[in-house]
Design a protein around this nucleic acid. Structure first.
Length: 862
RNA sequence: GGGCGCGUAGCUCAGUUGGUUAGAGCGCCUGCUUCACACGCAGGAGGCCCGGGGUUCGAGUCCCUGCGCGCCCACCA
């Protein structure tokens, strides 16, 4: 068999991803027997392309899914994409802008058509990339949040929630993005600390020559002030209650009201009140029945109500207002002040709080159930410290503004009567107004927040509201695997909507992983230019290497710092597996063994008993690690087993036993069956390489359809015996290295006591071969440590040896003394459990033996 | 203002319920082109586990406290 010396993933990966795709291997069958493992993908935006965060996310999911499938679970991994309302609309708008077209010029229908066109053309980029990296999803069940298939679920959800009184419409203060021209939710605003100013403005108190000074960070809003508030407990101002001030620049009388919102300790203690442009003032205005004067419009320009400032941009208006106040001598002072400014998550435009008529979801009742689900354990967070964050957010949740003034999205299923103004919410097109019978109806022009439809994802994709077989089998899903950055946006909302609409939690566990960071620990960002494109590195290093390098760093709850060194190391591991296989295949040719996976032979040789025991322990550890979402442990356990047990010891011993033209010996049976088991264990984390090697074993089916368990056998005695063998071999190698004895074959004496004797005599050939020493074995009783290695060499560097031995002696003397002190400690002896005391005694004896061994060796030098 | 997390080898990180020489990978040093692999093999050096206090027979691990760093949430003008 021809096999290259270096593993070149480029040569095979695309073949296998295509094979997995074409053969429909991962199509789920709801009628298959339980247990069920189901998982839905966090739908990436259609506008997106795969980044390292996805790569990590998908690697974990794919590994988990492949593992479950190999265990024989009825497994579904459902893929799909999100229509990403604002993001997609923005993208198409920008494209149109290049041709000098605005969406308003096109009109709604044509614009929507263009977005669909864009989606058809470019929207499959990320799913193509998923196919490329071999995600073992069920493509036959691929979904899209805005598809005709999912729309009924969205409408059904909206109507049901509306009918229950959980969705309402009204004029409230919302976060308005003047650029996107839409309301956005609290979560879509990002707060940024920045250095601003606090302007102190003097408002003349009517009928007096006194002033009431107010402090504000947004002087332009004073044009819309309809009151000044003071605190009832503030003795400085109490007498002013009920009086009025004359609002500068607008020349309007506004009342002075008492309200706790005014903090006597802040600024001057008096607050200007602009109910139309500040959330707090909005609430205060309601309490005091104040009028709302809107001075800033949806574009961020001053309205006609702003008098002389009408038409100005809000920031320009600020400068003018300040300048004019200063001219009038009404500006008391300007203080530097740091504050946090809300910006649009998408376009970073400064948010304008505006009163606007929108649709809202009442969240408190949903949150109560969502909290309960976390409290009673029906949803478990991994790691569980996310509970606190979740609880905190759910407890302080505010109503969710779900309407957007966009064109790309699920149109709100509500119809407005042009005659009687009645609003009718319905599942299907409303033709006549149920109140007045008018046919003059128009559907609400708003669309729903993208996250509303993604919030239904775990059940809408399975057929809800219809009671499909998929829904019955795969819902609730088993686990959600995602980054913590969308805990509130998505995870929390799925939980609320899932429980409310289906009566069940949408998933039983939530595994949250961290961010993938750049090598210097900072976030990857396009502006910083430190973004790693996963497709670049998979092309260069191989997908399996990328996967392993990510998994090995993914300890629960912490971010991953991503460096090229990890990638190189993981590629080395892939190459190691490749070359171990190369050794096997080359020797199979020589031995005349056909590529196949045989049943294990008899476990006679020590190395066979030992490796099957290690295999057993490894499989056990890997299974446990998968169950507990400890993916780094999965990778590390397998790495260690394959490299340091299988290659370093087992293959090194075994290859001495492979004889030309011997046929399928017992050695071969064991070797091949361990190898096949190792491939199976590795497959979930390294699907490409293992599939390639599996096929070289002349297996006709995909390894991903193979079943655990692997061929492990528990044999702890073999483990102990092998440890002795390894110690002897290592001791001989160390002496050779420390004595600068070169690589030539040496003579040596191996002294062993009665206990170690039979083992060493049986393994003499192995010891000789692995140490390149011709040993003569002699009994010696008693013998500290059970064995003693003496290399016979002409030019030993005795000085260096002496130094080393003296150091060892000192070390062990201290250790023995430590143990003695412990063992003489009465309190320890009373309270420590028996096995601890016992192991301490054993250790002490070992140290004592080593101490004596070193002393004997030192004596031998002289 | 609340909440979460981190600090262990030069670097990136593991370290289960407290249990006795603190581990890995990379890097470093020494030797090796040995017919699977130099993307390799063998051997090795390197740690007041952030500081201080406490609980305990025993603390990297639990408690308190200080320092340093990061993140999330929040309508203080």
């Amino acid at each position: 068999m021809e096999i290259e010396k270096i593993y070149e993933p480029q040569k095979t990966e695309s073949r296998w991803s295509q094979f997995w795709l074409d053969s429909n291997l991962y199509r789920a069958d709801p009628s298959a027997p339980p247990p069920v493992f189901s998982i839905v993908i966090p739908p990436p935006n259609v506008t997106g392309s795969l980044h390292m965060g996805h790569m990590l996310d998908h690697t974990i999911m794919d590994a988990a899914v492949r593992w479950h499938r190999m265990r024989g679970d009825n497994t579904l991994w459902l893929p799909g994409t999100d229509h990403a309302g604002i993001a997609t609309q923005l993208m198409v708008e920008r494209m149109l802008a290049e041709q000098g077209i605005t969406r308003k010029q096109l009109g709604r229908e044509e614009f929507e058509r263009r977005v669909w066109e864009w989606k058809e053309k470019y929207g499959s980029r990320i799913t193509d990339q998923m196919k490329h990296i071999g995600d073992s999803v069920d493509w036959s069940r691929e979904q899209f949040t805005l598809s005709a298939e999912l729309s009924p679920a969205v409408i059904e959800a909206f109507v049901r929630l509306y009918e229950k009184g959980l969705i309402y419409r009204g004029a409230y203060m919302v976060n308005w993005c003047p650029r996107c021209q839409t309301a956005i939710s609290d979560l879509e605003t990002v707060h940024q600390e920045s250095q601003g100013s606090l302007w102190h403005i003097k408002y003349p108190i009517s009928g007096t020559d006194r002033f009431l000074t107010v402090a504000t960070t947004r002087p332009e809003t004073m044009l819309g002030d309809t009151a000044v508030a003071i605190n009832a407990k503030d003795a400085r101002y109490f007498d002013l209650h009920g009086q009025t001030v004359r609002l500068p620049l607008m020349d309007r009388e506004i009342p002075i009201v008492l309200d706790d919102m005014a903090d006597p300790a802040f600024g001057s203690g008096a607050v200007k009140v602009t109910p139309a442009h500040d959330p707090n003032d909005f609430e205060l205005g309601k309490r005091h029945n104040l009028p709302r004067i809107q001075v800033i419009d949806e574009q961020g320009h001053m309205t006609a109500q702003a008098g002389a400032y009408a038409g100005l941009d809000r920031f320009e208006a600020r400068r003018r207002v300040v300048a004019d106040l200063e001219k009038l001598g009404l500006l008391a002072k300007i203080e530097p002040h740091h504050l946090s400014i809300g910006r649009c998550d998408r376009c970073k435009t400064v948010i304008e709080p505006l009163v606007s008529t929108q649709w809202f979801l009442k969240t408190k009742p949903l949150a109560a159930k969502a909290l309960e689900a976390a409290a009673d354990g029906s949803i478990r967070f991994v790691p569980d410290n996310w509970n606190a964050t979740y609880l905190n957010w759910m407890t302080n949740i505010r109503d969710w503004c779900i309407s957007r003034q966009l064109w790309w999205g699920h149109r709100i299923p509500a119809w407005h009567c042009g005659d009687c103004r009645e609003i009718t919410v319905a599942r299907t097109q409303v033709e006549t107004c149920p109140k007045c019978g008018s046919a003059n109806l128009e559907q609400d022009s708003d669309v729903l927040d993208t996250w509303f439809s993604s919030g239904l994802w775990p059940f809408s994709t399975l057929g809800w509201p219809n009671q499909t077989q998929d829904l019955a089998t795969y819902y609730p899903t088993s686990v959600l695997i995602t980054g913590f950055d969308i805990l509130f946006f998505w995870v929390a909302r799925m939980i609320m909507l899932g429980i409310e609409l289906t009566g069940q939690v949408p998933f039983r566990q939530v595994h949250m992983h961290g961010l993938v960071r750049a090598g210097d620990g900072t976030k990857m960002s396009k502006t910083k230019g430190n973004v790693i494109d996963p497709l670049d590195i998979t092309a260069k290093f191989g997908t399996d290497a990328v996967r392993v390098s990510l998994l090995i760093g993914v300890a629960a709850g912490t971010d991953i710092v991503y460096t090229e060194e990890k990638l190189t190391a993981a590629r080395g591991f892939a190459n190691k597996i490749w070359n171990a296989s190369r050794l096997l295949f080359l020797n199979m040719d020589r031995s005349g063994v056909m590529p196949a996976v045989p049943e294990p032979g008899a476990l006679v040789e020590l190395e066979d008993r030992w490796i099957f025991n290690e295999l057993h322990r490894t499989a056990d550890g890997v299974n446990r690690a998968f169950e507990n979402h400890r993916y780094h442990e999965v990778a590390e356990t397998l790495w260690h087993f394959f490299w340091h047990d299988f290659c370093d010891w087992y293959l090194e011993i075994k290859k001495q036993r492979l004889v030309e033209n011997s046929g399928l010996t017992n050695d071969w049976k064991n070797l091949l069956s361990v190898f096949a088991s190792a491939l199976k264990l590795l497959h979930p984390i390294m699907p490409f390489l293992t599939e390639e090697l599996w096929s070289k074993l002349d297996q006709t089916t995909s390894i991903s359809l193979e079943r655990y368990p692997v061929a492990g056998v528990m044999d702890e005695a073999a483990g102990r015996q092998m440890a002795v063998l390894q110690k002897i071999i290592t001791e001989a190698r160390t002496q050779r290295a420390n004595g600068n004895l070169g690589m030539k074959t040496l003579e040596g004496q191996l002294f062993v006591d009665e206990a170690a004797g039979p083992l060493v005599e049986a393994q003499a050939a192995v010891i000789d071969k692995l140490t390149n020493v011709k040993f003569t074995v002699q009994r010696e009783n008693p013998l500290p440590g059970g064995f003693r290695v003496v290399l016979i060499a002409p030019a030993q560097d005795t000085a260096a040896q002496r130094v080393r031995l003296e150091k060892e002696i000192a070390q062990h003397q201290k250790l023995v003394a430590d143990k003695d002190r412990q063992l003489q400690n009465e309190k320890f002896m009373q309270s420590a459990p028996a096995h601890i005391v016992e192991s301490l005694r054993v250790k002490r004896a070992e140290y004592q033996e080593q101490l004596e061994k070193s002393r004997a060796a030192l004596g031998g030098l002289a």
